[in-house]
Amino acid sequence: MSALSTAAPVTVKHGSATWRLTKAEIKLCVREKTGPLWGVGFPLILLVILGNVPALREPVEAGGPTYFDLYVPVIILFNLAILALTALPTILAGYRESGVLRRMRTTPVGPARVLAAQLVANFSIAVVAVALFLTVAGLGFGVRLPQNLAGFAAGWLLAAAALLSIGLMITALAPGRGPATAIGTVLFFPMMFFAGLWVPIAQMPPLLRNISHYTPLGAGMQAFQDTYQGHFPSAQPLVTLACYAVVCAIIAVRWFRWE
């Protein structure tokens, strides 16, 4: 037990604990594999496959965007949805279930910063992913960047906020890690449907199209499409996304349990 003499206090200048924790959580998210594999790798492969289907490279209407053009924002939302609805709640509910958050309560850092670090980690992965998707779509398949880039960024940020907020709400309400994953997965499919993953929103029956506009991913799609056409997103999708972000965050804060 040579530690006894050497384990005396040593004052070392450390980087901020919060920053170290954030770096650690990013590393853990990558090791967790759900985010990188299903949130980044899978949609990227999907993008490449769809880009190679000649039928999708035809314009939906003469002179307008192609089907493939419409799929790029769907892929971007796919990434956000996987990260926020399944990866984030699974990890956080797991932390609560196995006592990680409780353990953190006994340190000067506290559990809230673990939660924040997880949000930042998933957000960072999403930023890398959106840049990657736009680059591959642009360089590989000649899809132009959204003409209104600032509007696109604003829409994407609001969509990310809405989805992460929903993810936190799932974490707060799910009794454990298993249920959190299940709820996230069950929500994922209908939400992706309304984003137009299987049927483009424009081709949905009017009722479904209207519903879609008020779902988080449907609203996200609307916002993105506006920016591809060169406009700043219209108010309706932005307000819809902001409402999801605020309401779900309030519910999450109100019902969140640390243990």
Partner: peptide, 10 residues
């Protein structure tokens, strides 16, 4: 803690 775990992939 009696049952305090840490991040499992750390």
């Amino acid at each position: 803690l009696q049952d305090g775990q840490i991040q499992e992939r750390l």
